[in-house]
Computed example of a mutant assay.
Amino acid sequence: MPVDNRAKKPKLPPRWFIRLAWSVHRGIYRVFRGRVGLWRPRADRWGTLRLTTVGRRSGQQRAVIVAYLEDGPNLFTLAMNGWGEGEPAWWLNLQAHPEATVDLVDGQRLVRGRAATGDERSRLWARWREIEADLDAHAALRSSETALVVLEPRPAPGS
């Protein structure tokens, strides 16, 4: 009997379900005024943070909840759009206005966002792959490379 050696495409929920899950998560965060909805990363799973950027066209503050891991004083996340096509709006905003704010379980931080490149990107991607075994298969669903975004601490204004 022949064996099918082709890699299976990972299954994703329908787009409407992904968007609904995001809305519910943001709603829970809002209803509980930030006391529920964020968590720290652990050795075997990512954490969640609330990232507030400045809209590249509107100039208005925009907030989104994303998964993250820690790398020393830096935080890093994947600029994915639910593994769908296109860049997420928060990443486009961060590229236009790199200074942002993150809310974590233990408080708020001022950060500056940038894309990881070269060896740093490879190292951080490998760290994320330790937690998400299907990372490469999910990334292959997209026609463009998934940016790995580093959020570096920045000093408070006037410091």
Rank of each mutant, 00 (worst) to 15 (best):
W125E: 10
R114H: 08
A147L: 02
L75M: 10
P2Q: 11
P73F: 04
L92Q: 14
A43W: 07
W90M: 13
G59P: 03
D4Q: 11
Q61V: 07
E87D: 15
A139G: 10
N93W: 08
E152C: 08
M1F: 10
V54G: 04
L104N: 03
G107H: 12
A63D: 05
R114F: 05
S144Y: 02
P155T: 02
E132N: 12
E99Y: 11
E85C: 05
V31M: 04
R19N: 13
R40I: 06
A126D: 15
S23P: 04
D136K: 00
L75C: 11
R26F: 08
R112H: 05
V105F: 04
E120D: 12
R109Y: 11
D136V: 01
G47K: 05
E99H: 15
G59D: 02
G59C: 05
T117A: 15
L124N: 09
W83Q: 01
G84A: 11
G158A: 02
L110H: 15
R62V: 12
P13R: 03
W90G: 13
F76L: 07
N81Y: 01
E130S: 13
G34R: 02
R57I: 08
A43T: 14
I28A: 05
R123F: 03
R109H: 08
P73E: 12
R40M: 06
R114Y: 07
N93G: 10
A126S: 15
R109Q: 15
D136W: 00
D71R: 13
N74P: 02
P155M: 04
V66D: 10
Q108P: 04
W90Y: 13
R154M: 08
T101E: 14
L151M: 10
W128A: 14
P155R: 13
N74I: 01
A147K: 05
A7G: 14
T48S: 08
Q95C: 15
V111I: 15
G72Q: 05
G72W: 09
R42V: 13
A96T: 00
R109D: 03
W83H: 00
L51K: 09
A96I: 02
D44V: 05
D103Q: 15
W83T: 00
A140G: 01
A133W: 03
W91Y: 08
G55V: 00
G84W: 00
S159F: 03
R42F: 11
D103K: 14
G59W: 08
A126P: 12
A126V: 09
A63T: 13
K9Y: 01
V24F: 06
R109C: 04
S58Y: 06
D134G: 06
R142Q: 00
S159W: 06
L75W: 07
V54R: 14
A139T: 03
L20T: 14
Q108F: 05
G158K: 00
V64P: 00
T53E: 08
W90L: 11
E152G: 11
A100P: 07
S23Q: 10
L51T: 13
K11I: 04
L110Q: 12
A137F: 02
P14Q: 12
P10M: 01
H25G: 01
R26C: 04
